[in-house]
């Protein structure tokens, strides 16, 4: 269970994340939406340790992980993908996934074997020995996802993992997310593709200008006037 209380992050004079509370249960799928610049990526950067927060606390299963290092938080069971994908370009698909396992297990062969299983799960196993730099961007994003999943983390954060996907690819990713949730992995999704995020999330959290302006079921959110206003007239299509 992930608990954020009064989390605030400032960059000089700009308050990027303003007093945000958040509670995420095991296996819960939470969608994080908001206009550009709302602070979504900054918030997940705070959770994953890439930004140090200025006030508030972040707890994972009662353990305080506020302002701990990125690798510490990662080893507590929080894994993520990045808005601009960060696969290891010179490494192969299997090696990339094995990297996801490496901090917990020193045996390379075991990691590589497990990586093969994960690659198959994600439909990557026909390119096991291809270097990431030779893959399409969509495949690399899938790889990043596989790498984050490999260790069966407690929480996985997906930052715009569906950007640029075709409808079919979106459905594939939704399936993957559902499967992860069924394995008690909490999923935090940042997405702009409303159809997708509304359909899969159990709960939606809306940020605007750093503040949480709404939280609730997708159906409640799509009718929330404050949310609609934040998007400046964009109609939310469910």
């Amino acid at each position: 269970m992930l608990e954020l209380k009064n989390v605030t992050k400032r960059f000089g004079g700009l308050v990027a994340v303003n007093n945000v509370d958040l509670l995420i249960k095991p296996g819960e799928i939470v969608g994080l939406i908001g206009p550009n610049g709302a602070g979504k990526t900054t918030l997940v950067n705070c959770i994953s340790g890439f930004h140090k927060i200025d006030s508030g606390t972040i707890k994972l299963n009662e353990n305080d992980i506020t302002n701990k290092s990125v690798d510490f938080i990662s080893n507590q069971g929080i894994r993520r993908t990045f808005q601009i994908e960060k696969s290891f370009k010179e490494l192969t698909v299997l090696e990339n996934i094995a990297c996801g396992l490496i901090s917990k297990n020193k045996h390379l062969k075991e990691n590589m074997d497990k990586a093969k299983e994960v690659a198959e799960l994600f439909g990557l196993n026909n390119q096991n020995n291809v270097s990431a730099k030779n893959l399409t961007i969509q495949t690399r994003k899938r790889l990043e996802l596989a790498r984050a999943y490999a260790i069966h983390p407690r929480i996985i954060i997906l930052d715009e993992v569906m950007a640029g996907c075709t409808d079919y690819e979106i459905d594939e990713v939704l399936e993957i997310i559902k499967r992860m949730a069924s394995e008690s992995i909490s999923v935090i999704i940042i997405e702009h593709i409303m159809k997708a995020i509304m359909s899969i999330s159990e709960k939606i959290v809306v940020l605007n200008e750093g503040k949480k302006i709404a939280e609730g079921l997708p159906s409640e959110i799509s009718n929330n006037p404050r949310v609609i206003e934040a998007y400046l007239g964009e109609e939310l299509v469910v």
């Binding site: 990125v70 894994r79 993520r80 370009k89 010179e90 990297c99 260790i151």
Partner: peptide
């Protein structure tokens, strides 16, 4: 070597 941030995000110190 490939990506420090990503390496940290998979738990590498």
């Amino acid at each position: 070597r490939n990506d420090c941030d990503a390496a940290e995000s998979v738990g590498i110190n």
